[in-house]
Amino acid sequence: MEHYSMNLTLQIWRQKNSLDKGDFETYEIKDISSEMSFLEMIDVLNEKLINEGKDAIAFDHDCREGICGACSMHINGRPHGPWHATTVCQLHMRAFKNGETIVVEPWRSKAFPVIKDLVVDRSSFDRIIQAGGYISVNTGNAVDANAIPINKDNADDSFAAASCIGCGACVAACKNSSAMLFLAAKVSHLALLPQGKPERKARALNMVAQMDKEGFGSCTFTGACEAVCPKEISITNISRLNKEYFGAGLSIDKQ
């Protein structure tokens, strides 16, 4: 792999707190190695800002391995930036060329208010899980793990849905700010397993109700979420959720 060095112009959203209006600031940055990760490039910029006596750019990150779901930057109009199926912490600078201008913003959604700069409040996702994204089993009540064989295909599909990292890129990409892909991933993860079946109806209804309450928009199936999801959560999960949801609604009407 050939490595190179580049100079870049960055336009980054700065906003002191949730009450501040916020605006873009422009920064010039030199000698960025193509081997750096995108966040390491921001580290370099922050080091420079601190040395100049300015405030560092606040952004969420922790694992830097694409698994915790903390990092969340909208880069050149795309959540997590240009690489397919890649969180911004795994995006590397060889994705960019010398002289490029890069625009960086926080997630934009009513349900994700900005806390500072590129950091948003995603606690609405936790509350959606609280509404039913679990199996009600207390510690110590389990039977032997191999007592319930699970068809490998279902187990694999369940795992694929469960690999959602709760980053919120799907919401950020959606013109309606819908959280359907996130929600569908959780509902599918649990509905595909026999352990998750007893609560499936209530789960779908309650989680959707909570999503509405949090101010997320409704889904018009544009597919923008799937295109940016770093974990390639499939939009077919939304169809599954709809089936669960309407099935649940119907059977509850009958009662």
Partner: peptide, 20 residues
């Protein structure tokens, strides 16, 4: 018991074709 507990919670561990 940990494995039992996790499976009961819906942790999708890798499985063989026989479902185990």
């Amino acid at each position: 018991s940990i494995i039992d507990q996790c499976v009961a919670q819906g942790v999708p561990f890798a499985r063989e074709y026989g479902g185990l």
